[in-house]
Nucleic acid binder design. Sequence first.
DNA 1: CTAACAAGTTAGATTTATCTAACAAAATAA
DNA 2: TTATTTTGTTAGATAAATCTAACTTGTTAG
Lengths: 221, 221
Amino acid sequence: MTSLTEENYLKALFHLADAQEQVSVKQLAQVLKIKMPTVTSMMKKLAEKDLVHYESYKPLKLTQQGKKEAALIIRKHRLTEMYLVEKMGFGWEQVHEIAEQVEHINSAIFFERMDELIGHPTMDPHGSPIPDKNGVVAWKSYDKLSDGKAGQSVKLAALTHVSPEFLSFLNSKELSLGLRLEIISVETFDGSMVVRYKDHPGEMLSTVVCEKLLVEQMNKH
Amino acid sequence: MTSLTEENYLKALFHLADAQEQVSVKQLAQVLKIKMPTVTSMMKKLAEKDLVHYESYKPLKLTQQGKKEAALIIRKHRLTEMYLVEKMGFGWEQVHEIAEQVEHINSAIFFERMDELIGHPTMDPHGSPIPDKNGVVAWKSYDKLSDGKAGQSVKLAALTHVSPEFLSFLNSKELSLGLRLEIISVETFDGSMVVRYKDHPGEMLSTVVCEKLLVEQMNKH
DNA sequence: CTAACAAGTTAGATTTATCTAACAAAATAA
DNA sequence: TTATTTTGTTAGATAAATCTAACTTGTTAG
């Protein structure tokens, strides 16, 4: 059995490895808000259970087993988020905190029913993919908005990283998933963009923001 | 803050005190499936937090605070059960296990939304009262079916004790809450009853069963 | 190429929740 | 009313997850 604490380590490792292949003890400690020695000892424990590959001073890496377990927790998290938004009327900025707790619930039927009721989605409300029952993530590769060019028309499909601040920012700009955007211009020196959507004829977005927005191409130039 | 473990002690104390005023260390240990010394030390800890009155060798008793906290956990449990049955299509014998985990989730909005969606019920699917937001339990006093007399017509309102076996038994007999029953006859020597309901013209129920069924009077004789 | 700094590890302490073994108090039975 | 049994407590051990302090390895900048 994997404890709640262990589950959180697996999840964090999965997310970190997702963003950049090399995961360090320090990073994991920072993300989990614990000290480095705690990470070291937990890594040894998880290595015993064959959930991580651990060797002193080497980068941390999940085993196949570890990846699967992590993906299944993330599946529960994302199904929950989707359910909360779709069936309980929560805003997408409210659901993360709740899902963070619900994801540790141990009940196959509970999550299966949830999945059914929301129609077996493959994306959560933030646009992140929902791993399947076997922990397999269907990767759909989106482009960063920041890689787009002036004149392109794109659909906002997902977010790279999700923080409450970022979500509020998007809300304040009326930017939501599925939204169609037109790139009016790209500022060459700093990469900021002016985009048009809904009743926003010309909204300026900084590079920092554009790099966090994943889009689907709607036409090419 | 009360830990998950502490919450389970409070809940167990509340339930035990509900059934019979005197709660012993041994009982609590049995219910929680732990040893007596563990109970003793936890009682001291909870006494520190003013959640139980504890004196060596005296029966265990929740403080006002402790009762309130326990009632609020039970509120979450019962709202969850109701939600699972009403909104997710679970059978009432399936929901206890899930609710046992969901009840520890810390999120006011989550349970408030649940409460709203199921229309602020005051009873859970097993017929137990749902404490209000302040931890106040509205006690409606039901009669035991076993106290009824031949000829009476009653409505099945609640169950005194809930076990998976008992719930399956009720299911097998098509006995559900809200059901109208007519008492055909009472066997004087062992207290068993023959009752009529739905398409069951004459079902025999043992005293053991009749004592666990709480009913509302529909007419008197 | 070494000195300094950053990152990682070891050792040992702490807290929470549990246990067993031994002892003490209360209840029961002879 | 004393002996026996049951119930409860104390003391000390253990496992999980965390910490701090001290040490080691690896990296980087003169």
